[in-house]
Design a protein around this nucleic acid. Structure first.
Lengths: 364, 364
DNA sequence: GTGAAAGCGCTAACAG
DNA sequence: CTGTTAGCGCTTTCAC
């Protein structure tokens, strides 16, 4: 384990280049207002000494860190079971990197970690935070809001704006005014999925929900109900089975469904993993997909959806883009905040909802 | 997006408690050598003002950051396709959190990012680095070594110590002396897998490799060859098919295998995802598993291995523990380095190899 | 035990 | 344009 070595300081570079510290600082930070011969001398000195600015010293005076915290509340290990989180992170990382910001990852395992995260955020280590508020009763969003750090949420927080916001636009001014979040159009995606099944001539369309303590699951359920009510006036409650976004949960729910409604001819699963479980049970029960029962998923986790038997028709959301967008929104907010003093009135609250698209494969 | 507010300083706390800044500093940092009545006054002032130390100021003088970088080189998106990386991160995060260290995540998408990472590490923003060196020809490990930051590698680097090191102990002094890494016993795990198949009476045991530009894949292949050579003196090269750790790759390889060696009666797949693909092709071809062909995987990604048909027999490695161990080793090295000046001689180089175990399910 | 004083390395007014 | 001068908020000798 190599030992860290002490780095040269601005002072050293200044001495070597025969200029003042201020001049070196100017060159290092863009070089505006330094005449070429001098600037070149400084650059050479920087090069020769292998000078790298000390970020701590810089932050101390600028009060900027060029770092953003990503907070992932993970009471259940489900987050790690599907690649959702990884894709999101990748999108975030790309955007942050493009703007020379670091990504500080804060993983929480439960209540005990909340205080730590709040303290960290309040401690002004980072310029802003990207928070995934996974569960409806999560106290974290509140704590974070109190910490007074610019924040963008991933997924509609339960106290956020109304979910029926304009696709790919700003949501209206709701109770959560001032809250910024990015989500996909869960409700609209569910509409698309269910309408597609209905359009296929299916009459007994069931829904296996996600974990209903997450807004995404609730919104998808609402979307399902919208269409069912629209088409048949009222829905058969037995066609809705609560589950939890996992393959095992999907299996369980599908079994329950076949038990109480053997005439089911279509299933809208809350996500691809759930659909995977449902497909397995359908096969076991001797049903053909899509001939006997059509199945639609949600997410379009490509490695999953393409590999199922038959390949899964699903509602695609661009997860990586969501991550990227969250980061972009945060960084924009930060630079806006720096350009001019911000008043409470122009806080750019609201949600950005990304569109979804139906990917037709063989299962429906 | 809430605006950040300015925090109280040490000075403010000192004023409120009626003591000097030095005293407050002492209390905040453990409180040794401050008499109780005073200390209590300070604590109350801290509480009332909601004081949180400014890390930048602290780092500037202590030269410590209590932060560790995690570098993940990800030229291919495969890293995100399986939960490997997430589990590893979780283990790391737990250990770092327990020691009040932050996790700075550095994701790289290609060569262009290497310089950035090297610069960041050299910039002294973090106390150490945890690096996953995924590919044999990766220049990153070298760059990082040059950056002079204490580092622990995840997975044996190609220029590291010899792979046949003692299980769960320190590896010998090889060419990569001074390099610290954590890996699982890839070769030994392969031995176990292949011996198990042989013990089942299988005579035509094939191996579908992982991406051979990663040491884990090479070591598993070597382990396979060890046993084959041991049992039959020499191996049939057609029984080894190169693949890439993905389900699609596993399918392709399995098809190739069935084409050239239709008499194959066992397959050792380089990981569970590969086994998944192989199982699919075997089923398609009408072969029964394990009756006609026995299959063993590697990793024991539980959500994958338990859900295959039939459930997968596989070599388990404790991924989360690997992450935790990497962090522990790094932190230990860091605190050792602080306690006393370190000489080159006592750099605790070497690898730590975690054991693997065979998990018997139905596929072999 | 406690306080006073001296910086850590850098940026940002302000002069020149 | 360039240099001089003050700190940013904290820790850490060093006196008392």
């Amino acid at each position: 384990m190599t030992e860290a070595v002490s780095r040269p300081t601005l002072e050293a570079v200044a001495a070597r280049a025969g200029v003042s510290r201020a001049t070196v600082s100017r060159v290092v930070n863009g070089g505006d207002g330094v005449r070429e011969p001098l600037a070149e001398r400084v650059r050479r000195a920087v090069e020769e000494l292998g000078y790298v600015p000390n970020q701590a010293a810089r932050s101390l005076v600028t009060r900027r860190h060029d770092a953003v915290a990503v907070v992932i509340a993970e009471p259940e290990s489900r987050v790690f079971a599907d690649p959702f989180f990884a894709l999101q992170l990748r999108g975030i990382s790309k955007e942050l990197t493009a703007h020379d910001n670091q990504l500080v990852l804060l993983l929480t395992e439960g209540r005990a970690d909340h205080a730590r995260v709040a303290r960290y955020l309040a401690g002004g280590h980072v310029d802003g935070a990207l928070v995934f508020s996974l569960h409806l009763d999560d106290p974290l969003p509140g704590l974070i809001r109190d910490a007074g750090v610019p924040t963008v949420f991933g997924g509609r927080p339960d106290w956020g704006d109304d979910p029926g916001a304009a696709v790919c636009g700003r949501a209206g001014e709701g109770p959560g005014h001032g809250v910024v979040y990015v989500d996909c159009d869960n409700r609209g995606g569910a509409h698309t999925a269910v309408r597609h099944l209905v359009g296929l001539g299916r009459r007994r369309v069931a829904h296996i929900t996600g974990a209903l303590d997450q807004t995404s699951a609730v919104d998808r359920l609402d979307g399902y109900r919208d269409v069912m009510a629209d088409v048949w006036g009222e829905d058969d409650p037995r066609l809705v089975v609560e589950s939890d976004f996992t393959p095992a949960g999907g299996e369980r729910a599908m079994r329950e469904l076949l038990g109480c409604c053997p005439d089911v001819d279509a299933v809208f699963a809350a996500n691809d993993l759930t659909a995977l479980g449902a497909l397995r049970v359908l096969r076991e029960s001797g049903r053909r997909v899509p001939e006997d029962v059509a199945v639609v998923g949600f997410d379009d986790m490509v490695p999953v959806a393409e590999q199922t038997d038959p390949p899964l028709t699903t509602v695609r959301q661009d997860i990586e883009e969501m991550g990227r967008l969250m980061a972009r929104l945060l960084l924009r907010g930060l630079s806006d905040g720096r350009d001019r003093e911000r008043t409470a009135a122009d806080a750019p609250g609201g949600g950005v909802i990304l569109p979804t698209t139906l990917i037709r494969r063989a299962s429906a």
